[in-house]
Design a protein around this nucleic acid. Structure first.
Lengths: 177, 177
DNA sequence: GGTTTCCTGTAGCATTCGCTACAAACTTCT
DNA sequence: AGAAGTTTGTAGCGAATGCTACAGGAAACC
């Protein structure tokens, strides 16, 4: 297996591991174990840990981007789009990305420059994607509604993470019974 | 200085340090340095690090509770309350609590049982406090609006953390010019 | 075949982590 | 003063961190 392929293969497994265990658990030896190599080899394929994490995160961002692009349904009014997106976000296939997303956000808030940049890019991607999901004619209004939509999704993300699913249900208004 | 006072004094400085540096930087030796003692003494006053962090976080929660209780203005309609609270949250006196809050949320999302419990309690506190800020007669409607209010604040918290202040401004609608 | 380059395993460094054993102080009570 | 209990410092343990020096093996080129 030539080097680029091997690197891509490792990157894929690194992404899986980070997705499952989070950034905090992403130290070289566990990552290497998950990728089927040694820490020594990770630092052969990547100059240092920072570069490794950058590559892994951008790989994960590309994956999520693909998922979002595939999940492009018909534009809807705000409330409908919100309910649809919220349901999708909670699905087992997507929720791990959201967990990781919150970790990036928290680090950005603590002043981590790398996470702030990565996170900003991802968030703007979310925002654009939200616009495509909204059935609003006026561009300015659509932009404002996209912001409102994203904000509410992110807020529910936070509340659900600490167990306040009921508060989220009050907004998306799906009857529990 | 008797032991309880000394312990309370240390706790206060620990809280300051955690507020300034975050949970990730809260290891025993730096904490001890910030509190003016040694790691040895921290483990004399507290049985172990988990207990120390629990005490520190509940101390911080009490502080924030006091701040919120002091900031009880007149009830307002949703949009007005949102703008007021959002302005307050961004203030330098409160923002560090929000940074820390996001860190707790991220850990809860990653499966940290302690953070999930602490975070759940804090979030329910937020929710109740939001209710007191809303001028809505019907209790059911007020509850729903409090959830919507809290969700939007949390969402803006997330977006601001990665630099999307402009998206937040679209919701609270304060003209930039 | 020999040389040079690429790949990879072993072993270790220096630092930090939470935590502890041991023993000096210092207080307090008698 | 002497014994008992409370508070502190010193030193270190075993584990984990990111990273590196060194060398052996494989492969490719001449």
């Amino acid at each position: 297996m030539p080097l680029p392929d091997r690197r891509a293969d490792i990157l894929d497994r690194l992404a899986d591991h980070v997705l499952a265990e989070g950034l905090a658990a992403a130290s070289l030896r566990p990552l290497a174990r998950a990728a089927g190599t040694s820490d020594r080899m990770l630092l052969y394929y990547f100059p240092d840990k920072a570069a490794l994490m950058a590559a892994t995160l951008s790989h994960l961002a590309a994956r999520l981007q693909a998922i979002l692009a595939a999940a492009t349904a018909a534009p809807q009014p705000l409330e409908v789009a919100r309910a649809e997106i919220w349901a999708a976000v909670q699905a087992p296939a997507i929720w791990p990305y959201m967990r990781l997303w919150l970790e990036i956000v928290a680090r950005a808030a603590q002043g981590d420059a790398f996470c702030a940049e990565v996170g900003g890019g991802i968030a703007r991607g979310y925002l654009e994607w939200c616009e495509t999901r909204l059935a609003v004619a006026d561009p300015t209004a659509r932009q404002a509604q996209a912001a409102a939509l994203l904000i509410s999704i992110e807020g529910m993300l936070v509340l659900r993470s600490v167990g306040l699913d009921d508060a989220c249900a009050l907004l998306v208004g799906q009857p529990q019974a």
